[in-house]
Design a protein around this nucleic acid. Structure first.
Length: 842
RNA sequence: GCCGGAGUGGCGGAAUUGGUAGACGCAAGGGACUUAAAAUCCCUCGGGGCUCUGCUCCGUGCCGGUUCAAAUCCGGCCUCCGGCACCA
């Protein structure tokens, strides 16, 4: 190589070397401790963006670091290759999705390799290959057999622009997560996966996700949305049927003044005669902007007090949650309050704010004898401005009056159960996962419809159901599979008669719910041993993922589905773990000019351009240095140059001293024989090993680790070696810098490692250890404070006792002057840090 | 509205257990080298004041508190970002 740092020469050289030597190939070594490091795999959209660069740079540092620390590291990569953009490209440009996808994969794989990422490409997976999606179908069949996959008709989220269904998790503020169109409700027959069977377990296990950001765990908890309450049956006057409502506030039952049912409630047909009115409500079902009600003309009877209350159909009552019917307590629920005002319904106060001052001993004291008076109780309904939703004391509630609301909830729930009025229930916001998509570019759902036998799953031996590639892309609603006769027509696996295939494909989130398990097998070897029922040794060894890294946008969707799938696989006897991801790192966004980097904002930085201009090492280094991984990264072109300068300085200092370094050996028998400047450099080197190592171990704070390396570099450039021992120290420091920097900037360190006469690869070296003794300063600076204000400094040797330090501080000239005649009240000595002298005021 | 997170120089960010606020980098200013520029190297770099090689006061969103000592802990606000949002 040459005098000047030229990443365009250095980087391809080492990429070739790594590939030829298969340096990143991983094999199962039962005796070695393993580390599974995983970054979220990309969708092959065309090119990688800065978000990928950041994500993969973080993952690569961890993988390389752990490898140097002696772990057997699994670090794979693959492609989340099914999905809409490929199909849209087919419609717009006439390219087949398959071709489009594979071209993109080729290009992006080259880009990833140019970044110098340490992937074991022998384990690459691609979700659109039949050998992968075969197992999607296999899981589906297993779930179907166990009743975990089922078909039902329901109102679904429909994106008119994508012409397909969306899962609840894919609807963001009433808009499509992908194209931002307003989502409408449509009734369709759909396939669902019964994630709700695992709701309680998924919720409970949130407590065990110690290695996850609290934020993500909270989001999962909220998404599962558990609430405990009661279901209560209300009779309907003049009609046989009852209406069952769900409430978590049974303590307000006596305050119910009307009832609301969902437009899709089964009794609506019987109760409503105004069909036009009902249509108007239905048309606005699920819309947040306006709350509409239609009086049915019927009355329900409150089982607690036999009161007649009017029944309304309301657009805001969801059929999917609870029982599709609610009691309305306007005094204690703001939405009910607004509704009551709008339709002139009565408002009755049944909870008054507890003054909290008297008459209240403890929770075992259930009743209170004194009367409670608050403004709310004395109010007539006309005077109430808003609902009181808090806790309090019950009034106007028959035998329960006087109870505290939390106790009343228990008592009333018990009363309801004992009197056969209803039961205690637990509800979750989490719904079953609708996986049917009316699209071509996805995994065919392995089901056939037979006139005789009904819905039959494809038999295991006939898997995979291949997605046909001879289809036309019209671009007008509906899947192209509907027009493929060869695909549509098939035999019934049960009776052999004519049958029609399911044309819906699976949500692509199914693909990504278990890909991390697929990597364990390696390319072409996925096999779940369905017959043997034994656990695959690879799965047993590698799972769970030790460190998962990706964007926070998947905090619910992908991460929840993966936790669900892992449990299903566990229950199928395939896995022994329940949680797929031990530790999760959610990296921040890449920001430029105050906004997230995006094509629409026009503020993107192209990784290709960056690598051409500065090289991969600089790009990686900057994206790791600019901020800690979990925070947003503010992109700065000037900052990139700073990282480039640093690598240039390193290159320069090594090449300037190359021959001298090559001929030096670091064997220091006696540290005390070193000259002061060499000793100081030697000490700083050990301090830096300690700093970099602990910064990586502690929350992956790469930014401060790199800052530490820059500090050490500053010392190296000011060090002027003279003696052999100086040169030996210098060599030691250079080697250490290269080792410590290698996970961040792998090519340049590999090159310089070779240049100073070492054998490649640097990644076969052990991560350096520090010597605590050698890292210790001979003299430490103590700060002397008077009343907490810095007044002077003192150099001392570390071994001194508190009393000695105290004495020295008080004898210090300046301190003496300031203290003068004041009385010293107290002297505080903090080891290795400071002395604080507390004096009287004068 | 509810649940998270954050607020520190001109900027990105350090400060690990309450113990020297501003590490490291960027930008800026000054200087060296050069015919010149780039690159590189050296110096300065939170604000104010003073008797200016030094000293001193103020300073981590705001107001208060605890403490010998607070960016850090407590109470009350403000602002910004992210998520959820008719969930009965």
């Amino acid at each position: 190589m040459e005098e000047r740092y030229n990443p365009q020469k250095v980087e391809p050289k080492w990429q070739r070397y790594w590939e030829e030597r298969k340096l990143y190939k991983t094999e199962l070594k039962p005796s070695d401790k393993k580390f599974y490091c995983l970054e979220m795999f990309p969708y092959p959209s065309g090119k990688i963006h800065m978000g990928h660069v950041r994500n993969y740079a973080i993952g690569d540092v961890i993988a390389r670091y752990k490898k140097m620390c002696g772990y057997n590291v699994l670090h794979p990569m693959g492609w989340d290759a099914f999905g809409l953009p490929a199909e849209n490209a087919a419609i717009e440009h006439g390219v087949h999705p398959l071709e489009w996808t594979y071209d993109n994969i080729d290009y992006m794989k080259k880009q990833l390799n140019r970044m110098g990422l340490s992937y074991d490409w022998d384990r690459e997976i691609n979700t659109c290959s039949p050998e992968y999606y075969k197992w999607n179908q296999w899981f589906f069949i297993k779930m179907f057999e166990r009743g975990l996959a089922y078909r039902k008709s329901s109102y679904v989220n429909w994106c008119p622009s994508c012409a397909t269904v969306l899962a609840n998790e894919q609807v963001i503020a009433e808009r499509c997560w992908r194209c931002d169109s307003v989502v409408i409700q449509k009734e369709l027959e759909q396939w669902f996966l019964k994630i709700t069977d695992y709701a309680e377990e998924l919720l409970q296990a949130c407590d065990e996700l110690k290695g996850w950001p609290e934020k993500v765990v909270t989001m999962q908890r909220n998404w599962i949305g558990k609430s405990t309450g009661v279901e209560v049956d209300f009779k309907i006057e003049g009609i046989e049927e009852k209406i069952r409502i769900f409430t978590t506030r049974q303590d307000t039952l006596f305050g119910a003044t009307f009832m609301c049912i969902a437009p899709a409630h089964p009794l609506v047909g019987k109760l409503v005669s105004d069909k036009d009115g009902l249509e108007r409500i239905r048309a606005r079902y699920g819309r947040m902007d306006e709350k509409l009600g239609l009086f049915t003309g019927h009355y329900a009877v409150n089982p607690m007090n036999d009161e007649k209350i009017p029944i309304y159909v309301a657009n805001f009552v969801l059929m999917e949650y609870g029982t599709g019917a609610i009691m309305s307590v306007p005094a204690h629920d703001q939405r009910d309050f607004d509704f009551a005002k709008k339709y002139g319904l009565p408002i009755r106060v049944v909870i008054v704010q507890d003054s909290g001052v008297q008459g209240f001993k403890d929770s075992s004291e259930n009743t209170i004898s004194h009367s409670v008076t608050t403004p709310l109780e004395s109010s007539t309904p006309h005077e109430i401005k808003e609902a009181y939703e808090g806790e309090g004391i019950l009034v106007n509630s028959g035998q329960f009056s006087g109870l505290r609301s939390d106790i009343a909830r228990q008592k009333i729930a018990k009363f309801i159960e004992e009197n056969g009025l209803g039961k205690i229930v637990v509800n979750y916001k989490l719904r079953d996962w609708g996986i049917s998509r009316q699209r071509y570019w996805g995994t065919p759902i392995p089901v056939v419809y037979c006139d005789k036998c009904g819905i039959i799953s494809v038999s295991e031996k006939d898997l995979p159901v291949i997605l046909p590639d001879d289809v036309k892309f019209a671009g007008k609603g509906g899947s192209p599979l509907l027009e493929s006769e060869t695909f549509l027509n098939t035999e019934c696996p049960k009776c052999g008669g004519r049958a029609r295939r399911e044309t819906d494909t699976m949500d692509t989130f199914v693909d990504s719910s278990w890909y991390f398990i697929a990597y364990c097998f390696g390319k072409g070897n996925i096999n779940f041993n369905s017959e043997l029922r034994t656990q695959n040794p690879e799965l047993k060894y590698w799972m769970p993922v030790d460190q998962y890294i990706g964007g926070v946008e998947h905090a619910v969707l992908h991460l929840l589905y993966s936790r669900f799938f892992t449990r299903v696989m566990r229950d199928l006897g395939l896995l022994s773990v329940s949680e797929p991801f031990q530790n999760l790192l959610t990296q921040g966004m890449v920001i430029k000019d105050g906004a997230k980097m995006s094509k629409s904002k026009g503020n993107v930085v192209d990784p290709d351009y960056l690598i051409e201009k500065y090289g991969a090492d600089t790009s990686r280094l900057f994206s790791l240095f600019a901020s800690p991984p979990e925070k947003d990264l503010d992109w700065s072109d000037k900052g990139v140059e700073g990282a480039y300068r640093f690598l240039n300085r390193l290159w320069g200092v090594v090449y300037k001293n190359k021959f001298k370094v090559q001929s030096s050996k670091f064997i220091v028998h006696n540290i005390s024989s070193l000259q002061p400047s060499a000793l100081s450099l030697y000490r700083k080197t050990h301090q830096t090993i300690k700093k970099v190592t602990t910064d990586i171990e502690r929350e992956y704070h790469f930014n401060t680790a790199i800052a530490g390396l820059m500090e050490l570099m500053n010392e190296i450039t000011s060090f002027e070696p003279g003696s052999d021992e100086d040169w030996a120290t210098f060599r030691f420091t250079i080697e250490t810098v290269l080792l410590l920097l290698s996970p961040f900037s792998p090519h340049i360190t590999e090159e310089l490692w070779e240049a100073i006469g070492n054998k490649p690869s640097i990644f076969e070296q052990k991560w350096p250890d520090w010597d605590e003794e050698a890292a210790k300063e001979e003299q430490i600076e103590l700060v002397i404070q008077i009343n907490g204000k810095l007044r002077s400094r003192l150099m001392i040797s570390p071994g001194l006792s508190d009393d000695e330090i105290k004495k020295m501080a008080l004898e210090e000239q300046k301190i003496k002057e300031i203290v003068g005649s004041k009385t010293i009240k107290k002297v505080i000595v903090v080891k290795g840090k400071l002395v604080n002298i507390v004096t009287s005021n004068e």
